[in-house]
Amino acid sequence: MADIPGAARAEKSRRKMIGGSRLSEDEVAIKALYAYNKQANDPRIYNRIKDYAGGTLYLVEFVTPPSQEQEYWSVLIRDGEAQVFYDHEMALREAVMWTRRVTSINFGTIVISVISIIIVGAVVYLLWRDGNTESIKPLDYALTSVLGFWFGKSVNKSKS
C-alpha cells in the first residue's frame, strides 16, 4: 500500500488495535481517509512524518472524480486514532496546539511539589512514630521553607 523504503521491516512495530481488529497504521490512515472522503480514488501514502504532534503524520495523495484532479491530504495517527486534514494548514495548527499543551506543563512546579510532599510526609511520619517534636528539629527549616514557598506562591497569585 505504501511505497516507502523500509516499510516492510517496520510493519510489525506499527501494528495497533483499531476497532477490535489489527491494522497497520498505513491501513488505518487509508481507512480514515476513505471514511472522510468516499470519492478518493487510489490513495497512496507518499510520506510519513514520525513524532508529529504526538503521533505519526501520513501525507496521502489521491485522485477525485470527475475532474481527476490530484489532491493531497494528511492523516494524523495518534494513540490508535486517526484524524484527517484536508489541507496542510490544519495539520500545522494541530502540531502547534499539541506543542502548546506539552510546553504548558511546568516541570519545576512538579519537582517542587514532590519535594514538598516528601518533606511534609517525613515530618508527619516522625511525629506519628515518636510522638514528640524533638525528632523533627532537623526538619524545622525544611518544613518552614516548604510552607513559606507555598503560602508565598498563593499570595503572589492572588495579587496578580
Rank of each mutant, 00 (worst) to 15 (best):
E134K: 04
Y72V: 09
I30V: 13
N47W: 14
M17K: 15
T133Y: 12
S113G: 09
R9D: 08
R14V: 10
M90D: 02
V75H: 08
D42C: 12
E134G: 04
K153F: 06
S21H: 15
Y52R: 08
I136V: 07
P5V: 07
Y86S: 05
Y141N: 09
P65T: 14
Y125D: 02
E69W: 11
V96A: 06
A29R: 07
G19C: 09
G6E: 01
A10D: 08
Q83F: 10
Q70W: 12
E25I: 10
M1P: 14
S24I: 12
N106C: 01
V124P: 03
E61S: 05
F107H: 07
F85N: 01
S113H: 05
R22I: 12
I77R: 01
Q83I: 03
M90Y: 03
I30C: 04
L139H: 03
N37W: 09
G54R: 01
I136P: 04
I115L: 09
D42P: 06
N37H: 10
R9S: 14
I30L: 15
E81I: 14
T133C: 05
I18G: 11
R93Y: 14
I105T: 07
R44M: 07
D87H: 02
P5F: 12
S104A: 05
K153P: 00
P65A: 15
R22N: 11
I18D: 08
R9T: 13
V124Y: 04
Q83M: 10
V124S: 08
S24W: 14
M17G: 11
D26P: 10
S24C: 13
Y125C: 04
Y58M: 06
N156W: 09
A10C: 09
S154F: 10
P5G: 04
S67P: 02
